[in-house]
Amino acid sequence: MSIDRHQEVVALLDWAGRWAGGRGDVAGLLLAGSWARGAARDDSDVDLVLLSDDPSVYDAASLEEQSALGAFVTTRDWGPVTEWRFVRESGLEIELCVGTPDWASTSPVDAGTRRVVRDGVRPLYDPRGLIAGIVDACAG
C-alpha cells in the first residue's frame, strides 16, 4: 500500500471520529472491513458504520456537505442500515452506512451484524460502549 493512501485514510478516520463526537445524535462510529483488520490495499474502500439516534437527519446533500467524504455517488438500503457511497478526488471510495443503535443489539445479534463484526471492526467513537458490546458478543 502506498504511503499517500495510508496517510489519507488515517486523516479521514481522525476527522470522522472528531465529526461523530461533535454530533449529539451519534451513538457510535466504527471502521469495518479490510482497513479495520489491517488488510487494505490502495484500491480498498473505507467502510464506516454510523449509529445514530435519528438516522433520518442524514441524506446525500447533508453528507456531501462534509467535504472530507467526497462527492456523493449512490445509496443502497441494506435493511437495518442505509449505505451512502462517496468518492474523493484521489479515487478513494467511502461507504458510510447509517443506522440506529439497534444495529449493535446483542439480544440477539443480527446475522448481518455478526458477519460485519467478525470480518473486522475498529471503534472510532463509542461513547455508550455499543461497539465494544457487539464485538464481545461476536467473539469466539
Results as ranks from 00 to 15, higher is better:
residue 107 S to A: 11
residue 135 V to I: 11
residue 127 P to H: 10
residue 111 A to P: 11
residue 10 V to I: 11
residue 33 G to C: 00
residue 126 D to L: 03
residue 26 V to G: 06
residue 118 R to I: 05
residue 88 R to P: 10
residue 108 P to E: 04
residue 68 A to Q: 14
residue 18 R to K: 14
residue 105 S to P: 03
residue 28 G to T: 02
residue 49 V to W: 15
residue 31 L to F: 07
residue 129 G to S: 05
residue 99 G to K: 10
residue 41 R to H: 14
residue 44 S to L: 02
residue 15 W to A: 02
residue 129 G to Y: 06
residue 82 T to Y: 12
residue 118 R to E: 15
residue 120 G to E: 03
residue 103 W to P: 02
residue 25 D to W: 10
residue 15 W to I: 03
residue 125 Y to Q: 01
residue 66 Q to L: 06
residue 105 S to K: 09
residue 108 P to G: 09
residue 44 S to P: 00
residue 32 A to S: 02
residue 65 E to W: 07
residue 109 V to S: 00
residue 98 V to R: 04
residue 1 M to F: 08
residue 85 R to L: 13
residue 98 V to L: 05
residue 25 D to T: 12
residue 41 R to Q: 13
residue 45 D to K: 04
residue 44 S to D: 02
residue 108 P to V: 08
residue 93 E to M: 14
residue 67 S to I: 15
residue 89 E to S: 13
residue 62 S to H: 09
residue 134 I to P: 00
residue 19 W to Q: 08
residue 30 L to V: 08
residue 52 S to Q: 13
residue 138 C to Y: 03
residue 67 S to E: 15
residue 51 L to T: 08
residue 10 V to R: 15
residue 47 D to S: 12
residue 54 D to R: 15
residue 80 P to V: 10
residue 106 T to I: 15
residue 37 R to I: 03
residue 76 R to D: 10
residue 91 G to S: 00
residue 102 D to S: 10
residue 77 D to A: 09
residue 59 D to E: 04
residue 117 V to M: 14
residue 88 R to W: 07
residue 66 Q to W: 05
residue 114 R to F: 08
residue 138 C to E: 03
residue 89 E to M: 10
residue 14 D to R: 15
residue 10 V to G: 05
residue 80 P to K: 12
residue 2 S to Y: 10
residue 14 D to T: 14
residue 95 E to C: 13
residue 69 L to M: 00
residue 139 A to R: 07
